[in-house]
Simulated scan of single mutants.
Amino acid sequence: MIIAIIFISEYYYIILKDHDRAIFIGLWPPTMVGLLIYFNLKKNR
């Protein structure tokens, strides 16, 4: 799912030339990865 969001962001940036929306969408994958790491660490304690 995270890979799909990155490709959607690239689509908005390159094809549709909507740079603001592409940056907004592109910020979600690192946020999701960070939350997944946090919850996995919390679960393993």
Score class of each variant (00 low, 15 high):
1 M>H: 10
1 M>F: 08
3 I>D: 09
4 A>N: 10
5 I>M: 14
5 I>P: 00
5 I>Q: 13
5 I>N: 11
7 F>P: 07
7 F>A: 12
7 F>L: 13
8 I>T: 13
8 I>H: 05
9 S>D: 07
9 S>Y: 07
9 S>K: 07
10 E>Y: 08
12 Y>M: 14
12 Y>F: 15
12 Y>H: 12
12 Y>G: 03
13 Y>A: 14
13 Y>P: 10
14 I>D: 09
14 I>C: 03
15 I>E: 12
17 K>A: 13
17 K>Q: 13
19 H>F: 10
19 H>S: 14
19 H>I: 14
20 D>M: 11
20 D>Q: 11
21 R>V: 15
21 R>W: 15
21 R>S: 14
22 A>S: 15
23 I>K: 15
23 I>N: 10
23 I>L: 15
24 F>M: 13
25 I>Q: 14
25 I>M: 12
26 G>Q: 05
26 G>W: 00
26 G>N: 11
26 G>R: 04
26 G>E: 04
26 G>L: 02
27 L>F: 12
27 L>V: 08
28 W>E: 04
28 W>F: 14
29 P>N: 06
29 P>S: 09
29 P>L: 03
30 P>S: 04
30 P>V: 01
31 T>S: 05
31 T>H: 01
32 M>Q: 06
33 V>H: 00
35 L>E: 02
35 L>W: 05
35 L>F: 09
36 L>M: 11
36 L>H: 05
36 L>S: 08
36 L>E: 06
37 I>Q: 02
37 I>R: 04
37 I>F: 12
38 Y>K: 05
38 Y>H: 05
38 Y>D: 00
39 F>C: 02
39 F>M: 03
39 F>K: 02
39 F>V: 06
40 N>G: 06
40 N>P: 01
40 N>E: 04
42 K>E: 02
43 K>L: 03
43 K>H: 07
43 K>E: 08
44 N>L: 05
44 N>Y: 01
45 R>H: 03
